[in-house]
Design a protein around this nucleic acid. Structure first.
Lengths: 191, 191
DNA sequence: TTTACTCCTTGATAAAGGTCAAGCTTATTT
DNA sequence: AAATAAGCTTGACCTTTATCAAGGAGTAAA
């Protein structure tokens, strides 16, 4: 099965591209393999790419002044990730993107995406529609963060993404939910 | 000064529209005046519009099972708001949008926006680029929520949006930051 | 098969911040 | 200008959860 199938299906959920447009889109994709613990984005460097995961798992996290890690994104197959602020504004990244497993990713450069979007209307539509969906989802996470207890947030996540919760280390999940690893441990033992 | 100037300038920051495209865009805008405390969106009804504030202030909030309010968006002039999830998925809203002041807003229907975006490439580009920016911003808020203390979050907001902090009631700000009103009161008295 | 990581658990302690209750100030309304 | 409502402050108390520390289990490497 082609490594492009996933991302093309993803697009097809929103818009229809002609064969030649698909060709063009594929031509801007760069295939990259990364080993577990390898960094794909690092603070100080511009996050050049939108990254799509074909196989594997990646997290994006922020390292604060006290050396604590705060995970913004946990991504697995068929998900996108990047330091979005850096990618869009062409400024040095503030976050790390680190492979949690050996992974196969497809990368598309900012300039190439913009160039294609300016020419191909349906591709622009795809990114618009998809980003709007992500945005709606982001509000849900915000609500959860400001209104739920740690225990509720933990179970909400585990119920929503059981496959991810069992796949990533607990301290990563903890730093994603804004809970200490010890508290997660206690929440689990309580049940 | 035309009530459309703000939103047209907003668009012009991202893309260029022809005169006829501007005409078309304006034709889908519905002008609405709301009084302070009036609801623009309510749970149970689909959030039909993307709303742009010409003058005034609005907040979007969630009312939890215990009757507590959690504010997702505080918006003033030149900002958009809606229950994004409801707007995009055409499902009943979960949030309230409430006018914090007498306000003048421009509303655009989902179907009209989609129809225009499917025909006018640069308008689709505008919404794509703008939503991508909002998305990048949303990640910043997430980081802030999971990694900062209540006091840090409060001062961060006040420094970033001093004009809003002085304009909206403190309990609204509290419910936006996920802090109790009493704590904000104490934080302020400490300084 | 030791050695050494990495990750998770458990206990003791402390601090941050929430809740409740009462009073006070400032706006609205009549 | 009274009356009422809305919003803010302060104090006492208590719950939640973070932090620190030590040990244990599982996994990978030498």
């Amino acid at each position: 099965m082609s490594k492009y199938k996933g991302i093309l299906d993803h697009i097809a959920r929103y818009v229809e591209l002609s064969d030649s447009e698909i060709e063009e889109f594929i031509s801007i994709l760069k295939t990259t393999r990364v080993k577990k613990r390898q960094f794909i984005v690092q603070p100080g460097f511009v996050s050049e790419y939108r990254n799509y995961i074909v196989e594997g798992a990646v997290r994006v996290f922020y390292l604060d002044d006290l050396g604590k890690e705060h995970t913004v994104i946990i991504a697995i197959e068929d998900w996108f990730f990047t330091d979005f602020y850096s990618y869009i504004h062409r400024t040095p990244a503030e976050y790390y993107a680190e492979a949690l497993e050996d992974s196969l990713i497809l990368q598309m450069k900012y300039e190439d995406v913009e160039e294609l979007c300016s020419r191909i209307h349906s591709l622009s539509q795809y990114f618009r529609l998809f980003t709007e969906r992500s945005m709606a989802h982001s509000y849900k996470r915000t609500i959860s963060n400001i209104s739920k207890t740690t225990e509720e947030r933990y179970w909400e996540y585990v119920n929503k993404y059981p496959q991810i919760a069992n796949r990533v280390p607990q301290y990563v999940l903890a730093s994603y939910l804004g809970i200490s690893p010890e508290s997660i441990s206690r929440i689990r033992s309580r049940s």
